[in-house]
Design a protein around this nucleic acid. Structure first.
Lengths: 187, 187
DNA sequence: GTCTATACAGTGATAGAC
DNA sequence: GTCTATCACTGTATAGAC
């Protein structure tokens, strides 16, 4: 018998995928146990607070990933390059629209009220970081903020529609269009 | 004691609002009973198939509303006027972003698999109807389809981000921008 | 850190009185 | 068409052996 031994940091991505696919309410403990092949005992060992603690850790984990791969680069010294990298990261992270945004999914139903703070700060920081990068590329501040908001809005919508239609091309087209619009050619 | 007597058509909008706020999994029968002030007995009288039948009826009801107020006008003889009306209807229906899209919410988690057909056809028809209207306003077919897709994507994303930030202005700005972009000035 | 066994509240669903 | 009572089952969570 193989008995795999995990540590907390190994478990989070596994559980995250279950929440992502089933939503907060849909992700029952038994669904999590079967899909992670971890028993309830192990899960409660890692997360004594149960589902709520799991989801909170996962939101922090997602936010951390975006901070490292998207937000911090955008807030850094090479904004134009960071924007290009952002679109690569976004396309890879969401598997060209085959993977939904956990934070966006949590935002739609009452789950939002439970995790209002991390959900709000994720979107605020993304929009602010992108707006700042666009502004430092020479774009007018107000225009930059509007375009950043439009970009984040479009990504979320593209994930919804792509999954609704079962057509990842919707997402790919959206990213392509946004990539073009956020590439500042100082001509 | 007041005993209100309903018929099926009265119940659907009430239950719809519960699904919209709590999601399919989150909308438990007890949540539906308390929020509609209808007992389980009454609900199962109207919907012998339980939650699944309720959700199916609600999806049909939403689709019917959009057919009457959005799709059919777009498919009709006055496309430019229909597009203007669409933005009025969309803004009113989603309460300027304070009300989420039930179909979009269902699309994100595994609920999509259960209701794949109605979810898909809702978005397909919306995009196709808007694309057709834009084309009949003189826009190139391919461009019209891309813009229609962009519009529906943006609406869904705006609902997500508006709710995430608790800021309906995101939605209002999005509608304003799309309204402008879909107004063809044959100059 | 893993697991099984168990508690018990909440789930969808049904039956039958009014 | 309304309701309450009740069903079997699944939900989260806990305890304790290994």
């Amino acid at each position: 018998m193989t008995r795999t031994v995990f540590e907390r940091s190994d478990v989070i991505p596994l559980v995250a995928e279950v929440f992502r696919e089933l939503g907060y309410e849909g992700a029952s403990m038994s669904a999590i146990t079967t899909r992670t092949s971890l028993s309830k005992g192990s899960l409660y060992h890692f997360f004594p607070g149960g589902k709520e603690e799991m989801a909170r850790e996962i939101l922090a984990h997602v936010d951390g990933w975006f901070a490292d791969h998207v937000f911090k680069p955008l807030e850094g010294t090479n904004p134009q390059h960071a924007i290009t990298l952002m679109w690569d990261s976004v396309d890879a992270y969401f598997r060209s629209g085959r993977r939904v945004c956990l934070v966006g999914a949590f935002a739609l139903d009452e789950t939002r009220d439970r995790f209002a703070v991390p959900i709000k700060s994720y979107f605020r920081r993304w929009i602010a970081a992108l707006a700042g990068a666009l502004a430092r590329c020479g774009m007018n501040d107000v225009v930059a903020h509007r375009l950043a908001e439009e970009a984040v809005v479009s990504i979320q919508g593209a994930l919804t529609v792509a999954r609704a239609l079962g057509d990842s091309d919707v997402f790919k087209r959206t990213v392509k269009r946004l990539r073009k619009r956020t590439t500042i050619t100082s001509s």
